[in-house]
Design a protein around this nucleic acid. Structure first.
Lengths: 202, 202
DNA sequence: ACCTGAACACCGTTCAAGT
DNA sequence: ACCTGAACACCGTTCAAGT
């Protein structure tokens, strides 16, 4: 048995491990409570090792955001593209998947769709790329499909997509941030919302 | 000319000044960047004076949140109660006022409707009080009125209110956090959204 | 491409002592 | 009901020096 080339010390892909562990820590504990000191300690490296791969803590978090978008993209795109189901069914399924993600990963959801790095997001990924990763483009595609089937009115699908996204995002945000009375009634609210949207879009 | 009873040092209502100045600082610079040290320095007091009136920085911020809700209440309630205009007009006006507030005071809006103090909010004000201050109760009243006029379907108005609030809140959030493409198209998106809502609620 | 260790400026918070 | 001043633990970040 040959050993791997003995890399000095115990890391080869520290950058990836930093991103992955940071993502997990944010997911579990929230963005505000994590520190570089704890992150590096958990990986068994020195504090300063971070700066070999990232210019700052912010730069690292931005990497986590990118990772999060990719993760989300893999989650949503298949739903939109599943042609075996009707547009209405897929519409409802996408909203539910979106809400479920927010509920299961509130800290991650806030990181991806909250105020963090408003500036940097605009600089790094141009809007198009972000919204592609977000699934907004898939949503636009689905709405276009619905227009062709005559289910909804022929309006600029980007405007429609913005309105629909805002509705579901608002529901998710109010819910995970504790602003909605009767969280227990969530299922009823969601189903009603989808109904109102589909009817209103006609 | 009689001088005021010479209060020791230069403050009588420090508590109120702390709240007011903190609110202004948050409004201008955001919650994350303000520090107790800068706040007290701006008021010309010692750093430790804060702890005469508040148990912690968090407690002070919570006071700011309460102040914010009151401010908002004064803004919205008149619109809802203005019986000289039709329900549809008031509905549109309330959404616009809500959006305008978010756009003009994004930092304050995030403080009031974001994730901050999720826990404490639930403890201090019970849901009802908060949602009353938020204007949610007024919205429910407006929707009830609309039901009586036969403009919208007779559904549990609390469910309707949650759906409507979520839609506008989502629009405001995505906008001020920079997630929406074509912010320049905002007016079109808003008008379309109100249309979809009114139609969908029928 | 990592490590150790010391240091810096900046936090919120506490405390002891004054007026 | 405030003040001063020192101190504490905790940050992100930098640097000098190693391997």
């Amino acid at each position: 048995m040959k050993e791997k080339k003995t890399s000095p010390y115990h890391h080869g892909n520290l950058k990836e491990e930093l991103l992955q562990t940071a993502l997990e820590m944010i997911d579990k504990e929230g963005l505000d409570t994590i520190t570089l000191r704890e992150l590096t300690q958990r990986l068994g490296t020195s504090r300063t090792a971070v700066y070999r791969h990232f210019a700052s803590k912010e730069a690292l978090i931005l990497g986590v955001i990118e990772k999060g978008y990719e993760h989300l993209n893999l989650l949503f795109t298949p739903i939109f593209q599943d042609r075996t189901h009707s547009v209405a069914v897929r519409f409802e399924a996408m909203g539910r998947a979106y809400l479920d993600f927010a509920i299961e990963h509130p800290n991650l959801y806030r990181l991806l769709f909250g105020e963090n790095f408003r500036q940097e997001r605009e600089e790094i990924c141009d809007y198009k790329d972000e919204n592609q990763a977000t699934g907004l483009y898939a949503l636009i595609g689905l709405l276009t499909e619905a227009q062709e089937e005559g289910i909804i009115a022929q309006v600029n699908p980007m405007v429609q997509a913005a309105m629909v996204w805002a509705s579901i995002h608002g529901l998710a945000s109010l819910l995970i941030d504790g602003h909605l009375i009767m969280s227990d009634n969530m299922e009823a609210i969601y189903e009603y919302s989808i109904g109102v949207l589909l009817k209103g879009l006609q």
